[in-house]
C-alpha cells in the first residue's frame, strides 16, 4: 500500500512516495508564489515517477509552511515532527536533528523512537538560513552550489559578525573592499552561520549523533563549520532536503496501517 509525504517549504516543495519500507520516488521543485500549486505539482511528479495515480495512494501527509494550503486530501503535521520522524527513519540512532531550510533553522531533540522531546527555532530573522546563503552568493557573484567546496580552501576566514542578513551583506561588501579573498569571505559566512545555529541549538540537550537536514546541509562548508563549533561529527543523509517529506510519508504509512 503506497503512501506519500509532501513538504511545502518557503523555497522548495518536496514529495516522497513510499511502498512498504522503501522510498520508491521523490520530487523537488521551487515553491514559487503559489504553495498550493507547488504542493500539488510536487506530489504529481513523485507519483508519476512511481507510476501511480493519486487514487492508488492510501494516505498522504502534508507538512511545511504550505501544509495548510494544499487542496488534495491530506493530514497535516508540522515539519518539526516530520523532520524528527524522517531523521529517525534514515538513521535510528539520531538524537539531535539540525534542519537549516530556506527561511528557518531549527534544532530538534528526539528519543529512540523518533519522538520530539524538545525543539528550538530561529526568531524572526533569516540569518543562518538558506536565504541568507543565497543573498551572500549573490553579493559575491558566485553560484550557491559552489560555496561549500570553495570555502574549504580558506586558511584565514574573514570575520562576519553581523546577525542581520542585510547588514551582513554590507559587511561582505566591506570585506571585499578591504581585499579579502572570496574564499576567506565565504568561509567567514559559514562560520557566522555555525555560530548562530550553535547558540540556538545549545538551548536543547545535544546528544551523541547529530543529523543535519534541509537544503543548507548540501553545503559542505557549513557542515564543517558546524562540526568545528559542536566539536562533533555531523551526519548528512543522502537527500537532506527530503527529510521532512520522508517523515511525512512515514507518518502516512502509520495512518494507513491504522485505518485498515
Amino acid at each position: 500500500m503506497p503512501v506519500a509525504g509532501v513538504d511545502i517549504g518557503s523555497l522548495t516543495a518536496k514529495a516522497v512516495v513510499m511502498d512498504g519500507n522503501e522510498m520508491i520516488a521523490r520530487s523537488l521543485i521551487p515553491t514559487g508564489h503559489n504553495s498550493r500549486e507547488a504542493g500539488r505539482r510536487a506530489l504529481e511528479l513523485a507519483l508519476e515517477e512511481a507510476g501511480l495515480k493519486e487514487s492508488e495512494v492510501d494516505a498522504v501527509v502534508a507538512t511545511g509552511y504550505g501544509r495548510l494550503a494544499v487542496d488534495f486530501e491530506a493530514e497535516r503535521v508540522t515539519e518539526i515532527t516530520c523532520h524528527a520522524r524522517g531523521a529517525h527513519f534514515m538513521h535510528p540512532d539520531t538524537r539531535t536533528v539540525i534542519d537549516l531550510g530556506g527561511q528557518d533553522s531549527k534544532a530538534i531533540a528526539i528519543d529512540e523512537r523518533g519522538k520530539v522531546l524538545d525543539f528550538v527555532m530561529n526568531d524572526k530573522c533569516s540569518a543562518g538560513t538558506g536565504r541568507f546563503l543565497e543573498v551572500m552568493a549573490h553579493a559575491l557573484e558566485i553560484e550557491l552550489d559552489d560555496m561549500g567546496e570553495l570555502s574549504l580552501g580558506s586558511k584565514s576566514p574573514a570575520s562576519i559578525s553581523s546577525v542581520c542578513t542585510v547588514f551582513a551583506e554590507s559587511e561582505v561588501v566591506s570585506r571585499v573592499a578591504e581585499g579579502a579573498s572570496k574564499v576567506d569571505i565565504v568561509a567567514g559566512i559559514h562560520q557566522a552561520i555555525a555560530s548562530r545555529v550553535y547558540a540556538m541549538a545549545a538551548r536543547i540537550p545535544i546528544e551523541t549523533k547529530i543529523l543535519m537536514t534541509g537544503g543548507v546541509a548540501r553545503n559542505i562548508g557549513v557542515v564543517r563549520a558546524l562540526e568545528a563549533k559542536f566539536s562533533r561529527e555531523i551526519c548528512v543523509p543522502e537527500m537532506p532536503q527530503h527529510t521532512g517529506a520522508l517523515g511525512a510519508s512515514v507518518i502516512a504509512r502509520e495512518k494507513a496501517a491504522a485505518a485498515v
Binding site: 508540522t78 518539526i80 515532527t81 520530539v116 522531546l117 524572526k124
Partner: peptide, 18 residues
C-alpha cells in the same frame, strides 16, 4: 509588526504534537 503568525502556529502545533 513583530509577530509572525505562521511561525507561531508552527511552534504551537509542533509542541502539542510532542
Amino acid at each position: 509588526r513583530v509577530y509572525s503568525e505562521a511561525q507561531v502556529r508552527e511552534r504551537v502545533e509542533a509542541f502539542i504534537e510532542s
